[in-house]
């Protein structure tokens, strides 16, 4: 069991860093992907408009 615990702790101590880097990379790539630019701009603009009824 001791090995199990050490293994778990070792995993916990190291894995976070790799996971963090991978996660940050994916999020940054998604957010900065050039093709997404127009979609984001439109999304930010669209909520401002004053239409207050569902679309059909």
């Amino acid at each position: 069991m001791t090995i199990d615990h050490h293994m778990l702790v070792g995993f916990a101590k190291s894995f976070g860093l790799f996971y963090l880097l991978a996660m940050a990379a994916v999020a940054l790539i998604y957010a900065c992907w050039p093709a997404n630019r127009n979609r984001f701009d439109k999304a930010a603009r669209d909520i401002i408009d004053d239409e207050d009824r569902p679309w059909h």
Partner: peptide
Amino acid sequence: IGGLIEIAPLFTIDDT
């Protein structure tokens, strides 16, 4: 993930 990694090893802690 974060919670899992911090909490799971505590359940094998009795050994240490």
